[in-house]
Nucleic acid binder design. Sequence first.
DNA 1: CGGGATCCAGTAGGATACTG
DNA 2: CAGTATCCTACTGGATCCCG
Lengths: 122, 122
Amino acid sequence: MDVPTPLDAPADCRSVSEVLSRVGDKWTMQVVVTLRDQPRRFNDIKRQVGGISQQMLTRTLKTLERDGMVTRTVCATTPPQVEYALTALGRSLSEPVRELAQWARAHLATIHDNRSQYDADR
Amino acid sequence: MDVPTPLDAPADCRSVSEVLSRVGDKWTMQVVVTLRDQPRRFNDIKRQVGGISQQMLTRTLKTLERDGMVTRTVCATTPPQVEYALTALGRSLSEPVRELAQWARAHLATIHDNRSQYDADR
DNA sequence: CGGGATCCAGTAGGATACTG
DNA sequence: CAGTATCCTACTGGATCCCG
């Protein structure tokens, strides 16, 4: 237990890739961030995220619930109310993602520039 | 400029999602980690990663090169030698990813358990 | 050795309409 | 309000063969 975080073993790489591809889809992180401060209801999330269809929001929330990142609470009223909230696991994810967000903000423009230049050179 | 890292604005969410989905594919992180310590040649990377086809390695490396994360150096010898190395940008990415790797190691088993339980309950 | 070209299957994302 | 059910398109991952 000397090296802080090897990130060398193939098993680790696959774990990282698995997590990255899990949360790297189009909507998951936006939903997680939307739920970070307070629980919200379905159409509330839908408005906050913007541009997401009911279908994709349903899928995203169901997958998050399945992974134990989000809880789903149904109030048997009419009209029905369903409230979604982050679990501790879901909140804990937002910490390392915050780091990545900083990196994204700092370097995304550079990446886009690199792409433009690469494409122009051919 | 009070809050350290808001991660609230929709624009930020999209940046994060863009980066996550960019590096969240099946092979990118494994290639980056393989190149982290020293430059390597094509088939060397292929052996290190394991299970990747030439096609996918070619695509992955080309995309990394386009984004300015990897340099491609051709030695005009016979047989040709092509060496790939991480750029500073590529190396800087491995830092926040290291954080996410720790999270992955710590919580991946829990997530898998949650999935099993969720699937069993229906 | 280091790819390019082609073809193919599976899945992610999305539009729309309908339901309890 | 909060979904479910269809249907469709585009992209990802991969296998195979060919080339300098």
